[in-house]
Design a protein around this nucleic acid. Sequence first.
DNA 1: ATCAGATTAAAACAGTTGTTTGAGAGGTGT
DNA 2: ACACCTCTCAAACAACTGTTTTAATCTGAT
Lengths: 220, 220
Amino acid sequence: MSTALPLPPPHDHDATRARLVEAAGEVFAEHGFQAATVREICARAGANIAAVNYHFRDKMGLYDAVLLESICVAKMADLRQLAEQSQTPEIALHQIVNGMLRRMAHAAERGNWHVRIMAHEMAHPTSGLDRVVELAIGPNYSVLRGVIAQIVGLPPHHDVVRLSTHSVIAQVVHWAHARPVISRVWPDLEMTDARLDQIARHITDFSLAALRTFAQESTK
Amino acid sequence: MSTALPLPPPHDHDATRARLVEAAGEVFAEHGFQAATVREICARAGANIAAVNYHFRDKMGLYDAVLLESICVAKMADLRQLAEQSQTPEIALHQIVNGMLRRMAHAAERGNWHVRIMAHEMAHPTSGLDRVVELAIGPNYSVLRGVIAQIVGLPPHHDVVRLSTHSVIAQVVHWAHARPVISRVWPDLEMTDARLDQIARHITDFSLAALRTFAQESTK
DNA sequence: ATCAGATTAAAACAGTTGTTTGAGAGGTGT
DNA sequence: ACACCTCTCAAACAACTGTTTTAATCTGAT
């Protein structure tokens, strides 16, 4: 159960601290905050049990650190530049959908625990969710809303724009969130690169067809 | 913390058993299987701690019973008849979307813990998920896929139909699953009855616009 | 070499967990 | 009256929880 580790150089503050955050990310992603145990985290990090309370104040402090790193990762993959360097809002939409989807898809695999932790936050939000939304999700949400507002030709605060934004986000997030169910109702579905391309293409086409119809109706 | 209860008639097997399932549903929905405690469940049900191990074999047996009731509730609200008694597949789609969305929305409120438990199953699936998918989710998925196949004029096993089905489901489930985030990026949003109508109408319009475009392209 | 500070280690803490135990209370048939 | 079965209860069980304590170890500057 305990994995061999890239032998820890003794007395290196940042090293064990980083390994703790990484291991904690995995365990929190698997079991959620409450059900996760500091003993399993320390075992997986190859650290002593007291390390959690030394480097972070307590279990919650460790969880805060995990969420903070999750925010940093999300901010690195900022959608703003992805949208700005696209020539048309339609292309920007496809870029955003494709980018988000791939991040979600790879989240189920090794190391990328950020999305799975969010799944637990949805089922049972903790105090850290506010910060994640404010610093990571919120900005990306605004960018996407701006792009969609351009496509339908309505102001970003319009209900149609907001609802459509949620329609797009929902379709992307779905493939990460509902995967346990999807793999059961669609057993022979493999998440290859080609398949991800197909899904991203579909979500974009599906959404663009709807948005263009809305655009026609709004200028009528 | 412990609620007053409709005083339990002594030695009534089914009564305490039913109260245990109901209380367990709430607690499991709040904390998930692992983090939920049998002591809190029994306290909320006004039953002794040993009642869980007497009526159900153990904590997992109680959870199985909870999922089983969740399945029964879901089967009662079968989408099949909802689809069959609609005159056109377009109307059927709106009926299905509206029905699903309202069940999801009311799930966050009193008593209806079924959806929140599913949220935990998504984050950390247990052995009971297979049964839920097989008996409750799977059939409804097939019905919706049939309706969408009619609209786009393609066979149900076609990739476009499957992907579009997930697009529709995603949009509906999103409003239950991502509510903690939605309420933060859209603070002044109240889930009134009129609002639910608006959302259901939007999802239907959004999806129908896309599906009609697909239909034109498939017959071309 | 010596001291101060930072990091790790093992052991123990009190509290909580799921589960079991054994006794008792209520009803029903004889 | 008695025995029998079903159900409930309080108490206790060992195992596990997050956290604290105390001592040991290493690093780096004096």
